[in-house]
Simulated assay, not measured.
Amino acid sequence: MSRIARCSCGRLTVRCLGEPSRISLCHCHACQRRTGSAFGIAIFFARARVAVDGVYSTFTREAESGFLVSSHFCGACGSTVWWEPARMPDWIGIAYGAFAGTELPPPDQQVHVKQRLDWIRLDIPEK
Rank of each mutant, 00 (worst) to 15 (best):
R34K: 12
F44N: 00
R6T: 00
V14Y: 04
V50F: 08
S57I: 02
L117C: 03
R22H: 06
K114P: 02
S79R: 11
P105V: 01
K127F: 09
L104F: 04
L25V: 00
R87T: 10
V14G: 07
Y96N: 02
R61H: 15
V52R: 08
V81G: 06
S8Q: 12
F67S: 09
W91S: 10
E84K: 14
M1V: 09
W83P: 00
R121K: 14
P106R: 13
A76W: 01
S21H: 00
E64D: 15
S79H: 04
Y96F: 15
E64M: 07
H27C: 12
E19Q: 15
L122C: 05
D118P: 06
H112D: 14
S70A: 12
T13D: 02
I124D: 09
S79L: 04
D123Q: 13
G10V: 12
C26E: 08
V111G: 03
C31Q: 12
C16E: 03
E103L: 06
H72M: 03
G78E: 11
G36K: 13
C77D: 12
H72F: 07
M88E: 14
T80S: 01
R49S: 14
L17W: 01
F99L: 10
C77L: 05
A51C: 03
G101A: 05
V113W: 08
G40T: 11
F45L: 02
S8F: 08
G66Y: 11
C31W: 05
M1R: 10
D118Y: 07
S57F: 02
L104Q: 07
R15D: 00
R47I: 00
D108S: 11
V113R: 12
G97V: 07
A5H: 01
C31K: 05
A76K: 09
V52F: 05
R3D: 01
R49W: 00
A5K: 03
Y56P: 05
